[in-house]
Computed example of a mutant assay.
Amino acid sequence: MIDIKNLVVRRGEECVLRDFDAHVPEGTSVRVTGPNGSGKSTLLRVIAGLTAPDAGQVTVAGHPPADPAVRALRGFVQEPPPLYEHLTADEQLCLVAGVWRLRARDLRDRAAALGLGDRFDVLVGELSLGQRKKLGYLCATAHEPRLVLLDEPFNGLDAQAEQAVRDDLARWRADGRTLVLVSHSDASVAGLVDDTLTVGADA
């Protein structure tokens, strides 16, 4: 599913990722680990096609990460979530439903399961951090992608929402989807990953 060869990503004079290699087979669930500042989030952004590498080669399902064919396959749960602050939570959900030709009612049901049922009429910019995380997670995964990238998906979530996310990950893993996640919490990912990718500034 994901092939990375000799990946180099620089941030100014700093080399965030250096000669990084990885292969993530389809249907595998992997956790990306490494010290703070080692390039974990950057690696996810490269796989998602949002950050261009300075050198090396990255393919997802045989295509460059930014290829439109890949965009339809993947969902990226980002930290912080990219949302439209001037929309209400319900308008944000309806926008996503329209993009993926989904029923807004189904997204509302999932949002209610995450604890957002009473926040539909609130502007995104007025939601709490945890509520924004829930909404961002739902928007990124609404289309049930075959590849799910998750950057600290449990940060800021209450117990109900964390369990709902864990249930989703377990279901997707059982369904043979590919999961790549960054999480500082060992307990949150227990039983959800098959392998580990370690990144480091000197890797």
Score class of each variant (00 low, 15 high):
residue 194 D to C: 12
residue 51 T to C: 13
residue 178 T to D: 09
residue 192 L to R: 02
residue 60 V to S: 03
residue 105 R to Y: 01
residue 10 R to Q: 03
residue 54 D to V: 01
residue 203 A to L: 09
residue 21 D to N: 15
residue 69 A to I: 11
residue 58 V to T: 06
residue 45 R to G: 02
residue 57 Q to G: 07
residue 37 G to Q: 11
residue 125 G to T: 14
residue 140 A to M: 06
residue 44 L to G: 02
residue 60 V to T: 01
residue 155 N to E: 15
residue 19 D to M: 10
residue 28 T to P: 09
residue 32 V to F: 07
residue 150 L to C: 15
residue 124 V to W: 02
residue 172 W to M: 08
residue 15 C to N: 03
residue 100 W to E: 12
residue 203 A to N: 13
residue 192 L to A: 04
residue 79 E to N: 14
residue 132 R to L: 07
residue 5 K to C: 08
residue 144 E to F: 04
residue 168 D to Q: 14
residue 13 E to I: 13
residue 143 H to A: 08
residue 174 A to W: 11
residue 111 A to I: 03
residue 17 L to A: 06
residue 169 L to E: 07
residue 54 D to F: 09
residue 6 N to W: 07
residue 107 L to F: 11
residue 178 T to W: 14
residue 124 V to C: 04
residue 183 S to V: 06
residue 39 G to L: 02
residue 11 R to V: 00
residue 23 H to V: 15
residue 85 E to V: 15
residue 113 A to C: 00
residue 33 T to G: 05
residue 83 L to S: 12
residue 144 E to K: 04
residue 56 G to C: 07
residue 100 W to A: 01
residue 8 V to P: 09
residue 147 L to D: 15
residue 179 L to K: 07
residue 118 D to T: 12
residue 109 D to F: 08
residue 59 T to I: 12
residue 143 H to R: 00
residue 45 R to C: 01
residue 89 A to K: 15
residue 34 G to R: 14
residue 73 L to G: 07
residue 84 Y to A: 15
residue 192 L to H: 09
residue 36 N to F: 08
residue 184 H to Q: 10
residue 53 P to A: 11
residue 148 V to N: 07
residue 67 D to G: 05
residue 37 G to L: 10
residue 96 V to S: 01
residue 44 L to V: 01
residue 187 A to H: 15
residue 122 V to D: 03
residue 188 S to P: 14
residue 91 E to F: 04
residue 5 K to Q: 05
residue 50 L to H: 10
residue 128 S to W: 04
residue 51 T to P: 00
residue 199 V to Q: 00
residue 60 V to D: 00
residue 11 R to T: 04
residue 75 G to E: 13
residue 94 C to N: 14
residue 47 I to N: 06
residue 46 V to L: 06
residue 24 V to Q: 08
residue 174 A to N: 11
residue 121 D to S: 09
residue 119 R to I: 02
residue 162 E to N: 10
residue 63 H to Y: 15
residue 106 D to W: 04
residue 152 E to S: 13
residue 176 G to S: 00
residue 43 L to S: 11
residue 70 V to W: 05
residue 105 R to F: 04
residue 75 G to Q: 08
residue 185 S to T: 05
residue 63 H to K: 15
residue 57 Q to A: 12
residue 165 V to M: 05
residue 87 L to C: 12
residue 48 A to E: 03
residue 95 L to I: 10
residue 126 E to K: 13
residue 169 L to K: 05
residue 177 R to W: 01
residue 186 D to E: 12
residue 68 P to D: 04
residue 105 R to I: 03
residue 2 I to F: 04
residue 167 D to Y: 06
residue 149 L to Y: 07
residue 55 A to R: 14
residue 126 E to A: 12
residue 130 G to D: 12
residue 84 Y to H: 15
residue 7 L to T: 09
residue 22 A to E: 05
residue 52 A to V: 09
residue 118 D to Q: 12
residue 156 G to I: 02
residue 47 I to A: 01
residue 27 G to E: 04
residue 90 D to I: 05
residue 116 L to F: 10
residue 182 V to F: 11
residue 75 G to L: 04
residue 167 D to M: 10
